[in-house]
């Protein structure tokens, strides 16, 4: 009886030491959860989720303080990826949140007064300009977050939906009837 306890304790001790040693020496540096979540988010920094940017939202998700379905630009695909990563059920986009078509902000050059307020609002520094000089938005860098619309005192910024052109055009899902699908629809 005593021998058994001693042996078990000894085995436990040895294994514990081995595991502890392995933990220190074979540690695999892995992306923390926040980074993984942040990688899935679309980085528009638009704040539509209620957090000031994508990273704060990622942090909130990681701490279970926020739901995974609050990001409209990420769309269904984004929610699915988050659900996969976190091992939770997929859920549709939260109430009152609608995905919008992708757009970029455009400044009306005739109205802009060069107040620099939008420049301060832009989370990705996509607006170029200086005080009292006309501002221009770098379309390639614009995430379409709409954060520059509110601060503009003269409402000279407009969101322009990115229309489909020959370059961005995508092949459509074949709308060709496979038999039983038609039957089901009929």
């Amino acid at each position: 009886m005593i021998t058994a306890i001693v042996i078990m304790a000894a085995i436990g001790l040895v294994l514990g030491i081995v595991l502890g040693w392995a933990e220190v020496h074979f540690r695999v540096a892995e992306d923390p959860l926040v980074d993984k979540i942040d990688k899935i988010l679309p980085q528009t920094q638009c704040g539509q989720c209620g957090f000031p940017g994508c990273r704060p939202y990622a942090e909130a998700i990681a701490k279970h303080e926020a739901d995974i379905n609050l990001c409209p630009p990420g769309g269904e695909h984004g929610i699915r990826q988050l659900a996969d990563l976190l091992g939770v059920e997929f859920k549709p986009l939260g109430a009152g949140k609608e995905p919008k078509p992708k757009a970029v902000a455009v400044i009306d050059e005739n109205t802009c007064i060069g107040c620099t307020l939008c420049i301060q609002a832009c989370p990705v520094d996509a607006i170029i300009g200086a005080s009292k000089q006309m501002h221009v938005i770098v379309a390639d860098a614009c995430t379409g977050c709409e954060l520059c619309l509110a601060p503009c005192p003269v409402d000279c910024i407009e969101m322009q939906v990115i229309s489909e052109n020959v370059n961005s055009w995508k092949w459509r899902y074949p709308v060709f009837p496979i038999h039983h699908e038609v039957a089901r629809a009929a």
Binding site: H180, A183, A186
Partner: peptide, 9 residues
């Protein structure tokens, strides 16, 4: 019963 396209199948 399945309501399939009877003729082809």
């Amino acid at each position: 019963m399945r309501g399939c396209c009877f003729k082809n199948f």
